[in-house]
């Protein structure tokens, strides 16, 4: 190309090539995400096929921190296996049968945070068949705008204690009902 006749042609071409490259990268990312999602579903569906009694399947999670919150990663070292893959008791990792919700009930709409944790605790209390796959099929990004940041530690601690209290009460109720039932059977 004659630069004397077309002095701006080369920068324009570079710009166009850059846009094409960005579009290509975006397309590759979307394809990668779609492929990963399909792989996740396929692998979890295989667990349901292998275990007909299974009602909930979840996976492990690996967290990663953006630069602005990297100090949190350091602070979390040594806490609850924060350095490695964690059990993903999150809706994002979950594949579940409709019957799980019919047996456990829906998420508690009164809870602003931790409604998924509460649901999984209720599932465990109800004896629902749940499988935690060893595979890491979710990557969780921590950044300065995570929704969970708007809660305070006091709120979080209070919520955890409420969940424990609820679980204790449910389990004690089951024991109490069982004892009452057995006592009734003993009388007849």
């Amino acid at each position: 190309m004659d630069r004397a006749r077309f002095p701006v042609a080369r920068p324009r071409m570079r710009g166009a090539m850059l846009i094409v490259a960005l579009l290509f990268l975006t397309l590759l990312t979307l394809l990668g995400v779609t492929f990963a999602a399909l792989m996740k579903l396929e692998r979890q569906a295989a667990r349901f096929a292998a275990r007909p009694e299974l009602e909930i399947c979840i996976t492990h999670v690996t967290a990663f921190w953006e630069a602005e919150v990297r100090h949190e990663q350091e602070a979390m070292r040594g806490r609850l296996r924060a350095d490695s893959a964690l059990p993903g008791y999150l809706l994002q990792t979950m594949l579940a049968r409709r019957s799980a919700f019919e047996n456990i009930g829906m998420l508690n709409p009164a809870l602003r945070f931790g409604e998924d944790t509460d649901w999984f605790i209720r599932a465990r209390d109800a004896g629902i068949a749940l499988e935690l796959m060893p595979d890491v099929l979710l990557f969780r990004r921590f950044h300065s705008s995570n929704l969970t940041r708007s809660r305070g530690n006091a709120v979080l601690k209070g919520g955890i204690l409420d969940m424990i209290q609820g679980s204790l009460e449910r389990r004690r109720r089951v024991i109490s009902d069982t004892c009452r039932q057995e006592a009734g059977e003993g009388e007849t």
């Binding site: 602070a75 609850l80 059990p87 944790t117 465990r124 705008s145 929704l147 969970t148 530690n153 424990i164």
Partner: peptide, 24 residues
């Protein structure tokens, strides 16, 4: 010890400085 894995993802971190929250 039956709930440790359930609370592992979001442990409260009292020693962390508060961040300005910008998102929902």
């Amino acid at each position: 010890d039956d709930m440790a894995d359930m609370f592992a993802l979001d442990p409260p971190l009292p020693e962390l400085p508060a961040l300005k929250t910008g998102g929902t």
